[in-house]
Design a protein around this nucleic acid. Structure first.
Lengths: 101, 101
DNA sequence: TTCATTTTGTCATTCTTTGACAAATTTACT
DNA sequence: AGTAAATTTGTCAAAGAATGACAAAATGAA
């Protein structure tokens, strides 16, 4: 999925005909902050992913992957991550995995 | 460089014959916390990268890349980032870049 | 054993994130 | 235009995470 997690939530919300207030109620968060989440100003609370999956009948695993990849993309974007830097990071992640074992 | 940033600092420190106390003094941080940094328990403070570059006569740009790739690797490691997830994240980072323009 | 060095424990301080509610703005409808 | 619903933005206190600081314990080398 090529969109931010906030945009994804907004898509889910609107295609299912919910207002911010309604969905915020279901997720037990403030509707004003849900607006910020949709607009990328704040992050969605990880601990509420299962609730979100329930509300929209989504696979929790798939949703967690959506979330994790979005967070990683955000990180890459923020550091202005080049192809080369990403390659180095990949190797280093691999090194960390090897370390643990 | 295939090592954590902490291990990198430790290597620099020992090959240059510094003790934790000595290097911590040069970097103006607590030596106990420098120990934790070397052992990956705490993160090196980004704002001190220029000082670190000076102390060991390193290119600040190269050092910043070392740091950024380490942080990204840590992130990838922590989420148990698969190849597929990384690919998705890359696309999403690209999407974010496109958004900004 | 003794001294230097490193690691670990703990906690107060600082910084960042989140929750909450008000106010302002936008949108859609008549 | 008016107005009601929906969304966005402003602000700030509370919660949580990161950092600084110093003591104490462990390790190592002579």
């Amino acid at each position: 999925m090529k969109e931010t997690f906030g945009e994804y939530i907004k898509m889910l919300r609107t295609t299912n005909g919910y207002t911010l207030t309604q969905l915020a109620g279901l997720l037990d968060i403030d509707f004003a902050n849900l607006s910020r989440i949709e607009n990328g100003i704040r992050d969605f609370d990880k601990k509420k992913l299962s609730r979100l999956a329930e509300v929209f009948n989504l696979s929790i695993e798939a949703l967690q992957d959506e979330y994790a990849s979005d967070q990683l993309a955000k990180h890459m974007y923020e550091i202005g991550c080049s192809k080369e830097l990403l390659k180095v990071a990949e190797e280093k992640a691999e090194y960390r995995r090897a370390l643990k074992k």
